[in-house]
């Protein structure tokens, strides 16, 4: 199939950033990123600068890929990362616009590559259980009720890609932050620090300059792991409670 691509170029010779138009020939069995590989091979053969994009596992789990395809983070397929999107979702003659994740807290590094280190700093603020190696009791010492374990797991499937922030009209990181708070807070092992964790992580999130959640729900709709808005409510709850109960 013949495609027209409009790709955001920024950095290098494109100082201020602009959409460039390219033509590429793709096969329906290709993944979206393999289609970009074909374009880059073409550009290199023409001795031009290839399009930079983050990618690594190409199995939809590392969370590296971060591009907005026709206005949607990771493209049109529900619950699917850009690397798992295949060209059979497109047809001959289509025009596809590809842009980087946009948010003030995710500055563009080059082309489609953005800096998501703000997420690391949110985790560093409290997204862990404070246990040193060697301190743990037996793994089966505390049974965990199936439903709770399932909910914690659902939250833990977050791959930290940042699509939630990219999709949110407010550039809010609430879905990401709340998924971690919910994952750890629902488990008995993480409950001890739950309220303090909520406060520390929200404070860091605010400091990073992410916007405020206004419950639009775009994050949930675009999340490749389909993480639920329920987690945001959970974080609101624990944060408000923690403010009033802590000393």
């Amino acid at each position: 199939m013949k495609l027209t691509l409009k790709i955001w170029r920024e950095g290098g010779m494109y100082a201020s950033g602009k959409l460039e138009t390219y033509k590429v020939e793709a096969d329906e069995h290709m993944s979206f990123l393999e289609m970009l590989d074909v374009l880059n091979q073409q550009l290199i053969e023409e001795k031009k600068d290839p399009v930079a994009f983050d990618h690594d596992c190409r199995e939809g789990i590392c969370g590296s890929c971060s591009m907005v395809i026709n206005g949607q983070p990771h493209g049109p397929q529900k619950g699917t990362t850009a690397c798992q999107l295949h060209m059979r979702s497109y047809k001959n003659g289509d025009t596809i616009t590809i842009e980087p994740f946009r948010a003030k807290s995710f500055p563009v590094i080059k082309d489609l590559v953005v800096d998501r280190s703000a997420f690391d700093r949110i985790i560093q603020a409290g997204g862990y259980v404070s246990v040193n190696t060697g301190q743990a009791p037996d793994g089966n010492a505390i049974p965990i009720e199936g439903d709770t374990a399932g909910k914690a797991f659902d939250a833990a499937t977050c791959i930290g890609c940042g699509a939630c922030v990219a999709a949110c009209p407010n550039g809010s990181a609430m879905l990401f932050t709340s998924a971690k708070v919910a994952h750890l807070g629902l488990l008995p092992q993480g409950k001890v620090e739950h309220e303090a964790r909520s406060q520390k992580m929200v404070a860091q999130m605010d400091k990073e300059g992410f916007g405020m959640c206004s419950n639009v729900g775009a994050c949930e709709a675009e999340c490749p792991k389909e993480i639920s808005l329920e987690n945001i409510a959970r974080l609101n709850r624990s944060y408000i409670a923690s403010v009033f109960s802590s000393e």
């Binding site: 907005v68 590809i98 003030k104």
Partner: peptide, 14 residues
């Protein structure tokens, strides 16, 4: 604040 946090909008329309 939110407008500031978002930055620019997408050219692609979904």
């Amino acid at each position: 604040k939110n407008k500031g946090a978002k930055g620019s909008k997408y050219a692609g329309k979904a």
